[in-house]
C-alpha cells in the first residue's frame, strides 16, 4: 500500500502505469507545442517537414518569426510593462497589509481581513466587469459634474493595471503574512528597549527578515499579471496584452509563430519557477 509495506506486483505495476499516464497527459500539450515551434511548415501540425528556426528568426513575406513580429512584440512589451507595475504595486501594498494584519490591532480587523480574502473567491470575470463598471461610472461623474475627462478611467493600460492589482495583492499579502508569522517578536522588543523607533525596527529588523518572501511574492505577482486573461479581457483597450493578443490569434487560426512564443513562455516561466522553488527551499532550510 505504502512504501513501508509489502506490495503485490500487480498493484505496483498498475499504480506505476497510472502515474506514468498522468504525467504523459500533463506534459503532452506542452511538449507538442514546443516541438512544432521548430517544424518547417506553414501550419502548426504534422507531418514533420524538417527543423527550422524560421518561426523565431525569419523576416519573409510568408513567414514572420517572433523576433520580427511587430504585433506580438508590442503586446509582449505591454504585458511586461503591466506586470512590472502590478508586481511593484502589489508587493508594496501587500507587505503593508501583511504588517497590518499580523502586527497591528484596530477595530473591525476581522471584517477587513475577510474583505482582503474576498478576491480569492470572486471569479476573475466578475472582478473585471465590476471594475469596468465602476471606472465608467466614475469617469462619467467626473465629466458631467467636474467637466474633466479622465483618460485613466477608460479601458486601457491603467485600468488593466488596477484590475490585476486588485486581486494579485491578496496573494502577496498571504505569502508575506505566512513568513511574518514565523518572526520572533522578541527581536523587535529588544530593539525597542535599546531605543529604536517602530519604523527603525521595521526598516532594519523585520524587512530584512522578510526579504526572500517579498522577492518571491513579487516574482509570483509578475507571473500572475503577465499571464492574466479573465480580468484583463474586460479592461483592455487598444493595446492588447500578450494573453489577449494570443487568444485572438489562436481563435482565428495562425502560423506556428504562436508555438514559438509559447516555447519562449514555457522556457521563461520554468526558469522563474525553478529559481523560486530553489529560493523557497533555501529559506525553509535556513529558518
Amino acid at each position: 500500500m505504502i512504501r513501508s509495506l509489502p506490495r503485490s506486483r500487480g498493484y505496483t505495476m498498475g499504480y506505476g502505469l497510472y502515474v506514468t499516464l498522468y504525467f504523459v497527459f500533463l506534459f503532452a500539450p506542452l511538449a507538442v507545442t514546443c516541438v512544432l515551434a521548430f517544424n518547417d511548415s506553414q501550419f502548426p501540425s504534422l507531418p514533420w517537414k524538417g527543423f527550422t528556426l524560421d518561426w523565431f528568426l525569419a523576416d519573409l513575406p510568408a513567414r514572420t518569426g517572433i523576433f520580427h513580429d511587430r504585433g506580438n512584440l508590442s503586446s509582449i512589451f505591454t504585458s511586461a510593462q503591466t506586470a512590472i507595475l502590478v508586481s511593484v504595486l502589489a508587493t508594496l501594498v501587500g507587505t503593508c497589509a501583511a504588517f497590518l494584519f499580523e502586527q497591528e490591532e484596530f477595530p473591525l480587523k476581522g471584517a477587513l481581513y475577510f474583505l482582503m480574502l474576498a478576491p480569492l473567491v470572486v471569479p476573475g470575470v466578475i472582478l473585471g466587469i465590476s471594475i469596468l463598471i465602476a471606472a465608467t461610472t466614475a469617469g462619467t461623474f467626473m465629466e458631467d459634474v467636474l467637466g474633466i475627462d479622465v483618460g485613466i478611467l477608460r479601458p486601457g493600460f491603467w485600468l488593466v493595471v488596477l484590475g490585476q492589482f486588485s486581486f494579485i495583492t491578496t496573494f502577496v499579502t498571504l505569502v508575506v503574512s505566512a513568513r511574518l508569522k514565523k518572526f520572533d517578536r522578541t527581536l523587535e522588543e529588544a530593539a525597542l528597549n535599546l531605543g529604536a523607533t517602530r519604523l527603525e525596527v521595521i526598516r532594519y529588523i523585520t524587512l530584512p527578515f522578510l526579504r526572500t518572501a517579498i522577492i518571491g511574492a513579487g516574482a509570483v505577482a509578475f507571473l500572475m499579471s503577465f499571464e492574466n486573461f479573465n480580468t484583463t479581457l474586460f479592461l483592455v483597450g487598444s493595446e492588447p496584452t500578450l494573453p489577449i493578443n494570443l487568444y485572438l490569434q489562436v481563435r482565428d487560426g495562425s502560423t506556428p509563430v504562436i508555438n514559438a512564443i509559447s516555447f519562449l513562455l514555457i522556457v521563461g516561466t520554468s526558469l522563474v519557477a525553478c529559481v523560486n522553488l530553489y529560493a523557497g527551499r533555501r529559506t525553509e532550510v535556513s529558518s
Binding site: 507538442v32 499571464e227 486573461f229 494570443l246 504562436i258 509559447s262 520554468s270 522563474v272 519557477a273
Partner: peptide, 22 residues
C-alpha cells in the same frame, strides 16, 4: 512534486493551445 507543479506556471492559454493542436 516539482514536475507536477511545473506545467501550471505556464499560461493557461498556452496549455489550451497545446490541446488544440493535439
Amino acid at each position: 512534486l516539482t514536475m507536477l507543479l511545473l506545467p501550471f506556471w505556464v499560461s493557461e492559454l498556452v496549455r489550451v493551445y497545446g490541446w488544440m493542436i493535439l
